[in-house]
Structures are given as structure tokens and as C-alpha cells.
Amino acid sequence: MMTEVTLTIPRPMVQARAVNKTIRNGSHRVEILKSIDLSIPAGQFVAIMGASGSGKSTLLGLLAGLDTPSSGSIILDGEEISHLEEDALAQLRGRKIGFVFQSYQLIPTLTAEENVLLPMELSGNGDDPGRARELLDHVGLSERRHHYPVQLSGGEQQRVALARAFMVRPPILMADEPTGNLDTANGRHVLDLLLGLNRHEKTTLLLVTHDRELAANADRRVSLRDGEVVGDELQARDE
């Protein structure tokens, strides 16, 4: 059930201007993204959709500064990031972006709590075990905070990743198929937690998914096909 709505657009939190991404595969050049223009206001929940190979993960990577565009520019919270050095990008991510990946990406040698604390330690702001515990409690893992990733189920690992993503209170959260590796029940649980935390922390959320049901929860849906934006529509949240 989608309804056209008009929103007062606050300042943009994430912007892509004429972004192209080309990679060389041997002697071939493959255009992964073509002239992407996108502006995401603060607090918006955007679902990026598309079939496999449409370029959605690449776009997310570029918006997060995980990779650099071949041309065009990315602006995060008013700061042009396309030409930033690797370390500056890392610092920026540490401050502004929380991540949730499809395959959890926890550090296998750290416990759940240590994984959650890591972004704060990396940002040089010491640690805040209280907040880490609060987040783990929020995702229902306070009892398992001393467990290593290998001792946790997929759903639990993803919940730890969620807690980690919110640890430094980032203004932006990026999630790449966060429920892709989970069964329906676990997926639903993780999604609820993600959306709950997002509401609670008032973050801008970019979610890559090919799951229409999941995307229905978003304020806006951006569709990609063959590296191009083929749809960009605001929608009322289906909650």
C-alpha cells in the first residue's frame, strides 16, 4: 500500500553526484554504476533495491567510502569524501557510519562485547562498556557477551553486528542484505531490532535488499538495474 507523500526535506545527509564506477577485469572494462545522482536527507530510511549484479552493493560501498568512484562525487554530512585519503575515510566512517553486513563480519578473535566496543576504541574515545552492554541487552545477548563469534548462531552474530553498528551513535547506518543469511524468524527479529534501534537512535538508514517486503518498511525506495537508477520513490512506511 503505497501513497505519494510530500515531506519537508531536511539537509541532505548522503549525496551522490554523477557517480560512475568502472572496473577493469583483465582487458575488459565493466561499467558497474552509471551517472548515479542521489540525495538522502538526514533521518530518512532508504531501501536500495535491485537484482543481483544491478550494482546496489557497489553503490552502498561508494556511499560509505569503502571504495572510490571512477568519477563523480560523494558527499557525506556536507563533506566531500571522494578524494579523501584512506585513513581520513576510515576516521569518517568510524564517526559517522554504522555497518551491518550480510555475512556479519565480526572479528573472530574478539568476544561479542569486544566486537561491539571496537569502533569506539578505534575512534580513540576510550571505551564505554556500559553502552556496549546496553546495546547487547537491547539485542537480547547480554548473557552471551563473552562468547566468541564462532560460539554464536548466525542470527546472534548479526545481532552483535547490529549492536556494534550503533555503538558510536553514528548519524548514518548502512546495511547490506542484513537478513540475507538468516532464516525467516531470525531475519524478522534482526530487522525489528534494526528498525527499532534506528528509530531510537534517529539515524539515516540505507538498506540494500532485494526483499520487497523488507523494502516496504522504508521511507523511500531506490531501484537499480544494470548500474542505473530506474526508480526512486518515496513511500509511506509499511509498519
Partner: peptide, 16 residues
């Protein structure tokens, strides 16, 4: 590589 990439993605600098 994976661990390094994860750390970088959550804000770790190369020096760290």
C-alpha cells in the same frame, strides 16, 4: 584481509 577490511569499514585507520 577480511579482518583488516572489517576493521577499516568500521573506522580503523591503516596505522592502527
Amino acid at each position: 584481509m577480511d579482518t583488516i577490511a572489517i576493521m577499516k569499514s568500521i573506522g580503523a585507520r591503516s596505522g592502527q
